[in-house]
Each structure stands twice: as structure tokens, then as C-alpha cells.
Nucleic acid binder design. Structure first.
Lengths: 222, 222
DNA sequence: CCAAAAGTGTTCGTACTACACCCATGC
DNA sequence: GCATGGGTGTAGTACGAACACTTTTGG
């Protein structure tokens, strides 16, 4: 079966920058390509938009199919449309980024037989296509948005300590924060609340556990 | 001549929200459609991405061809990819917005025979496709960016008065500003300078004329 | 009792807000 | 001389930045 048009049509894909903070580092999920071009190289998960599928839905589907992830924060990032960005044919890519809670490491490694792995964004292999450009933009966008919205909480598991929260903010924005000022700031937003539980880990004072008050909401600040 | 693919491909267009402040109002340039669908209705200028043309270049070209405008600020806005957004075939639209200096009204009305007209964003006709959604997003984005970057200056002609500048900011963000505070703010950014000239208009004190110091730059504030 | 991370307040500077009157010109 | 928009300063407030010690636990 083939499809014929009066004018040439580009192919359209979505590529997804899947980010999380793990082991004290901002990490991105990459897939080892099983086919040409760039066979054997690492790339962002993604795939072609189906003809009867909304572009947003395509991103949701690829997230599930290639990374086994669903129900997470997903936002359109930018559309990459240079003519030569794919050697096969004209491919325009609508890039998204997804934020994964840190501890929910239920990561079945990709539903299909592809090889998936978390990489620190500071120690990346060579990426296929223009994917390092896409990743750079995602990092920039995330860092900016963590300062003027509450997206950062999408990187949090159900319950977390304030130290962990601060660590996530520092790693995702690549900027150190003062402990007392950070706590004053996050409390002033009224977005987290104490669970009443404590979390003991090691020979020191246990930390109070917090939760996000309204996990659905992403609010703009200022 | 026809083009055949193994899988169905969507068509890709760019649509451009061309904004300016004119006669004390934020205005958008619309084109009256000469063909079905939505024949005779107003729509954003735009058109299909050519197979050997970068998506960004397509936006630049459409801006020139449909509105006779070039050399202005142009930025990608968002990609609209709902399946049913075009009744003809599957069309994915990469939307851009352009900012036109207020007085440079050298607007030859569209190079092709299309009918182009400026509309106040407060008195819009019914728009074709999902174009009112695109326009809404452009308005929101512009208003936000005027507060945290210097894009607003892209709406300024070569020389302008402070009152005019303030008016543009008020109309583009739909928020009133205090005259003295606005002036302190804009001066603190070091982005405009006095030309030394004055501008007399009417029976009152003439206004000093200013220019943008670095017209190319768009800097983020904060 | 010692090591380790958790928790907690105050001071200072700066940037935003609110606000009202004199100035220069054309007619 | 009067009507019209152009131009200017100050005081109060709120927010972000800098900064160090005490608390609680496990071993």
C-alpha cells in the first residue's frame, strides 16, 4: 500500500526529552538506535506521527511505547524543521519534554526490545540527528520554568524531604540555593504540605516528609 | 507529477500572527481567503512548507509573499497538530509571530492579489481553522515576553517618544503603567537613548525623541 | 560523645508601588 | 492666557540575598 500526493509532503515525528533527577544528577533517557541511520548510536525516543493521531497524542504514545512511561508531565518544546536534519527524507520534528518523578523507578526498560538508558546530562554520548540541540533547549527551558512556575514539582515523588526538593532544584537549574531562603520561598507558594511522617536515613536527625498539595496544577509564579 | 510514500504523510504549513500597535490598538494582519475551505473568511497568512525549505524560512517567505513584509522580528510560537484542524487533509501548522514597528507602514497590501487588512485584536471577525486559538496564544506570549525581555522594542520605529513607547507597552500587554515608574524602568535597562531631537505635535510641550541603542538585540530581563 | 544532616531568624539592600505638580508649546 | 500633553522626585513597602548556630538521631 502506498500513498500519493500532488505535492511532496514531509514526514513528521515527535521526539521526547525525558528528564529526571536521579542519584543527584539531572538525567535524560536515551534509546540505542536499532536501525539506520545512526544505527547503534544513542538518540531521543520518538517516532512518526500517525495520520489520524493528534501530534500531542503521538508524544504520549511514544513515551509509553519507547520508554514504558505514562501519566507524567509532558509539554511541547519546539519544532525543528531544518531540511537536512534527517538523511533519509524530509523530517520535521515536534519536540516535547517530559518530567519524571525521581523515585518512581518503575522503569521497565522500553516495551519494545530497544535498549534504553539514563544518562547524566553532563556525560552524554554522541547523539543522533540534531538531538543534542533539542536536549540543550529542553535543559534551558526547564531551568527557566523552574524559576517562574511550579513545574519543578513534577520531578517529585509522592513524598519527599525538603533537602531532596532543594537538590532537585539545584540540579535541574544548575544553580546552588541557600537552604533557608529556599524553604521560605517554597513555603510562600503554598504548594507543599507536611505529611506528618518522618524519614530516617543514617546517623542524623530524621527529615520531615512533604507532599505536593495539588499534584495536577502547574501554576505560574510572578 | 505526483509524490508517493510508503506511509501516509501529513502536510505542514506555517501560519504567522503579524502584530503591530497602530492607532492606539494592538492589531493583527489577516488575509481574506480566496479558495475553499473557508473561502471569503479571514485567516492568518501562511502556507505550505516546501520540501526543500527550512520551516523557519517558510515563515520568512510567507511573511514576504502574503504581507509584503521582511526584516522584522519573527519567532516560532507553537505547533498545532490536531487531526481535524483542516477539513481538506491532515495539516500540521507551525505557528510564528512577527512584530512590526508601528510607523513603518510601507505595507504594500500583499504581493499576490489577496486582500489583507489590519484588525484590532478586540474586534475580530470569525477566523478560519483554529486560527483564533493561535492568535490567542500569540497575544498571551507577547504580553508575557514584554515583561521579561526587550522584544517590545521590536514594535518601535526608528525614533519614538516615551509616551508612544508607553502606549505600545500598555496596548500590547493590556495593562496600564504609571508614567514615572515606566520611564525609570525602561531607563534602568539601558536599551534606549535620546536622539537629541524633539517632536512637536499640537499645542503643548514637544516630546524628546529616543532610539533603540542596539536594535538587533533581544535581551532577557531578570 | 561524635559525626552527620535537619531545622530555624534576622538584617540589609534593592526594586517595585503609589502618588501630584510644573513645563513648554500652539493657538 | 489657556488648553494640552511632556516631563520630573520621593516615600513606603515587599521581596530577594547574605549569613551561623542548634537539634536530633545512629553508631
Amino acid at each position: 500500500m502506498t500513498y500519493t500526493y500532488e505535492y511532496p509532503h514531509p514526514a513528521v515525528t515527535t521526539d521526547i526529552v525525558i528528564l529526571t533527577v536521579m542519584d543527584g544528577e539531572l538525567k535524560v533517557l536515551l534509546i540505542k538506535r536499532g536501525t539506520e541511520p545512526f544505527k547503534g548510536q544513542w538518540a531521543l525516543p520518538g517516532g512518526f506521527v500517525k495520520i489520524d493521531e493528534n501530534v500531542d497524542n503521538c508524544a504520549v504514545r511514544e513515551l509509553q511505547e519507547e520508554a514504558g512511561i505514562s501519566g507524567v508531565y509532558l509539554e511541547q518544546l519546539y519544532t525543528f524543521g531544518r531540511v537536512d536534519r534527517d538523511p533519509r527524507e524530509r523530517v520535521i520534528s515536534v519536540a516535547y519534554y517530559a518530567l519524571i518523578p525521581g523515585k518512581d523507578l518503575t522503569l521497565k526498560a522500553g516495551t519494545d526490545a530497544t535498549e534504553a538508558e539514563w544518562f547524566s546530562v553532563d556525560e552524554l554520548p554522541d547523539l543522533s540527528f540534531d538531538h543534542s540541540e533539542i536536549l540543550d533547549l529542553a535543559k534551558t527551558r526547564l531551568a527557566a520554568k523552574m524559576d517562574y512556575s511550579t513545574v519543578g514539582l513534577k520531578l517529585m515523588p509522592e513524598e519527599f524531604t525538603l533537602s531532596y526538593l532543594q537538590d532537585v532544584y539545584e540540579k535541574a537549574t544548575d544553580k546552588p540555593r541557600d537552604k533557608r531562603n529556599f524553604r521560605k520561598w517554597i513555603f510562600s507558594l503554598d504548594v507543599i504540605e507536611a505529611t506528618g511522617k518522618k524519614y530516617s536515613k543514617g546517623p542524623h536527625r530524621p527529615a520531615m516528609l512533604y507532599r505536593v498539595i495539588n499534584p495536577e496544577e502547574v501554576r505560574n509564579i510572578r
